[in-house]
Design a protein around this nucleic acid. Structure first.
Length: 427
RNA sequence: CGGAGCGUAGCGCAGUUGGCUAGCGCACUUGAAUGGGGUUCAAGAGGUCGACGGUUCAAAUCCGUCCGCUCCGACCA
């Protein structure tokens, strides 16, 4: 991608009223734009990051045996009355009456829709288990939005649902999702804390929350400084309590943001919506369900919270919007030569399958460097006349700030070694 | 939904004891010089001062109502 043909509006100054570091960089690096409180547009660069995260999620979901589908946002209130959640969630449901007079809402989650769908097609134990997921926009009429996309009225969620014949099947799928979540957060560069949690309005028995400690968090977790185990705050357990695992440390409170939550729902929805199957013994039984959510848009904010410095974002390579940014600094009589080399690298590396951002703007070095630091592409190639006089170009690591001068002709090979992880900048 | 703050150009801000044509920085346009960390100079363009109503000879400025945004709290799948 050529920067001059892209849509990447970076901001030099922080917009008014922006407190969270991640929110600040989301806006300044041209990732998102606020339409109104709690409602955000994803600009091209932000969308690219979103797609990279979605890609990781899809790989891990598919690996865990889940199958992707796509459910509607528009949902009849009638469906929600079947489970009584039209009342439970009445404050967050965005309701309206359509032109035919039907009471509708925009889906805040999809348990009712998926249960209704599956019961139409599954009649026998032979068809179970069924595990489905989607990545889709959710709508919640939040009274108080917070930290930009962290708590928004419209946000992107991955939600998966499992339908099993028996509790053992549910436990197996739950375990698979649990492991998939660990992989997803690890690949996103996040050190997720997993704690047993309340099921809240979802209902059901067992549930686990996946959190990341960050100032933008809305939850408090307790961590044992001795054995590092974490747990939630409860009535008889707070900061200062003794760790129940190692019985040595004194629990310390930490602010954390919830990114994922998995639930063993049991039969709450299948009973309410009559999602039954005929078992081997000839008896009708309710399907045993689980549901598994990840706040995808929220993951972006968490990654920035964990991977930034005073100059901008430092994307972990697997979620970075581009693999490499090429920064030519054309000047004087060498200008044409510098741009030719930049274009040649761009073409070769793109052909080799890398996603490249070429900063072809007629800006000064300082502007380009500052923007590059801000948007945080992991690897930067700098082509300037100073080093080119010796036949060299510079490779710079955004994360470590390490720089390496390489021969201009061996750069593509050296770079692919670095990107494949067979080499690092140091040697 | 309670508490606090804010709203003037795309962004960040000044101006608010009522008074000349509403100003500054960044960004933007044109020209020139520069060319490895937001470079310099010159000339420009860009405004319903959040909205509506009131007071006044005169309102960005005073009064009222409303709207929007942010933060704290309550709530939260």
């Amino acid at each position: 991608m050529l920067w001059s043909r892209y849509f990447l509006p970076t901001l030099k100054e922080t917009p008014i009223g922006v407190e969270a570091m991640s929110h600040q960089y989301l806006l300044r690096a041209g990732l998102v734009h606020m339409l109104t409180s709690g409602v955000y547009s994803y600009l091209p660069l932000g969308l690219k990051v979103l797609r990279r995260i979605e890609h990781i999620i899809r790989e891990e979901m598919n690996r865990a045996g889940a199958v992707e589908l796509f459910l509607p946002c528009l949902q009849p209130i009638e469906l929600w009355k079947q489970t009584g959640r039209d009342e439970v969630l009445k404050d967050v449901l965005i309701r309206f009456t359509d032109n035919r007079g039907r009471a509708m809402c925009l889906g805040p989650t999809h348990e009712e829709v998926i249960t209704d769908l599956v019961k139409n097609y599954v009649q026998s134990y032979r068809q179970l288990p069924v595990v489905l997921y989607q990545i889709q926009t959710k709508f919640r009429d939040e009274l108080r939005t917070r930290f930009g996309i962290v708590r928004a009225c419209e946000f992107i969620m991955k939600d998966a649902y499992s339908f099993d014949r028996d509790p053992e099947g549910l436990k197996k799928n739950y375990r698979l999702m649990y492991e998939a979540y660990q992989n997803i957060f690890r690949r996103c560069g996040l050190d997720a804390v997993i704690i047993e949690a309340d099921s809240g309005a979802m209902g059901g028995d067992t549930s686990h929350e996946f959190l990341v400690t960050a100032p933008i968090g809305e939850d408090t977790i307790l961590r044992c400084p001795s054995c590092q185990s974490c747990c939630s705050v409860s009535g008889d357990r707070g900061e200062g309590a003794k760790c129940s695992k190692c019985r040595q440390g004194v629990l310390k409170g930490e602010v954390a943001i919830e990114l994922g939550h998995i639930f063993q729902l049991g039969t709450k929805y299948s009973q309410a919506q009559h999602a039954q199957f005929l078992d081997e013994d000839g008896k009708q039984k309710p399907m045993i369900m689980g549901c598994y959510g990840i706040g995808v848009s929220r993951v972006i904010a968490a990654i920035i919270e964990k991977h930034h410095d005073e100059r901008g974002i430092r994307w972990p390579h697997e979620v970075a919007p581009f693999d490499v940014t090429i920064v030519p600094l054309p000047a004087g009589t060498e200008a044409a030569e510098i741009m030719d080399l930049a274009n040649r690298y761009y073409k070769d590396l793109t052909t080799a399958g890398y996603d490249i951002l070429l900063d072809d703007r007629p800006e000064t070095a300082g502007v380009k460097f500052n923007d590059a630091d801000l948007i945080g592409i992991p690897v930067r190639i700098i082509i300037g006349k100073r080093n080119l006089a010796d036949g060299k170009v510079e490779i710079k690591d955004r994360r470590t700030n390490e720089a390496l001068l390489v021969d201009k002709n061996t750069l593509p090979r050296k770079l692919s070694e670095i990107l494949k992880g067979t080499s690092c900048l140091k040697n």
